[in-house]
Amino acid sequence: MKNRKSKKIQRKPISKKIKDTIKYIRLHPTLYLMLIPGLVLLAIFEFLPYYGITIAFKDYNIFAADNPLAAIGASEWVGFANFQKLFGSSDFMRVLKNTIVINGLRIIILFPIPIIVAIFLREVRSKKFMSVTQTAIYIPYFFSWAVISGIFNSLLGSYGVVNTVITKLGFERVGFFQDPEIFRGVLLFTDGWKSVGYNVVLFMATLVAISPELYEAAKIDGANKWQEICYITLPSILPTIVMVLILRVGNLLTKGFEQILVLYNPAVYDSADIIGTYVYRMGIGQMDFSRSAALGLFNSVVSATLVIGTNYISKKLVKRSLW
């Protein structure tokens, strides 16, 4: 029914559409005025700087002219040379693969956890216990990776607490920071440790806003708790889930730079070196704005493709999309 209606609207002649729009704007001018502050900010701080994307295709020297802006014009075009420098090396495929695997695992394993935690937190009877837990798990988000690295080094290092217990029990030491595969586990665990509580915040607002009447109605219909969770709670937070998931997928190439930079070491480069850390290592001591611009553009393009793709899939599958 609804579908047919929308099709009809689409078939309307364009002039009619414009007329409708003008009529709507006349009726709700304030709605459009409300958009202005946001649009102005976006125009100034997002769209205006877009001309700088050209830096990715130049050999940009910030001192080439009187100021960095004029220097963009004064710098030489080099085509795709900056991209070639980035991706030309034999290591790049390995690094790309690592990036996708590690950040893919983050999505598969870590993304659902805060949702589950948020749903079950809501079911805790003692509200005090709930808020204490909620507050506690949110604390690690404010720890810098340098400090987290310190904590987990003393916990998981070869002579750390965990390995002392393991060796006392008569087992072999576990090389949490040396074994390429196990180290990926360390990355996932520390990321989860740091960010689960923060991500719970995202979902809590929608959860508490679910109308209690829905649950009352379900109770009368004889639904049990599990059914309530599946048929009321989950669908209510689905829009937020979809939105966060799509953006997470969009960050597939860029996530985890700071974490890995602090936690990794030469022994696990083979499995843990991601694009960000690799490019960082290659460029230490150099001030190459063009290189970072090229990397930024590459990441943006990939991320845009991923976001648009996931958005399309989710539109088809769950009738929900980002925009």
Binding site: Y24, L42, F45, E46, F47, A56, S300
Partner: peptide
């Protein structure tokens, strides 16, 4: 709301692309 498609496009582009450090600094 009319003009949603336009706003959607604006938001999507703003979200996905960034001009980079130098031009933002210059602005």
């Amino acid at each position: 709301l009319k003009g949603r498609n336009f706003l959607t496009a604006v938001l999507a582009i703003a979200m996905l692309f960034s001009g980079g450090l130098v031009p933002t600094y210059m602005v």
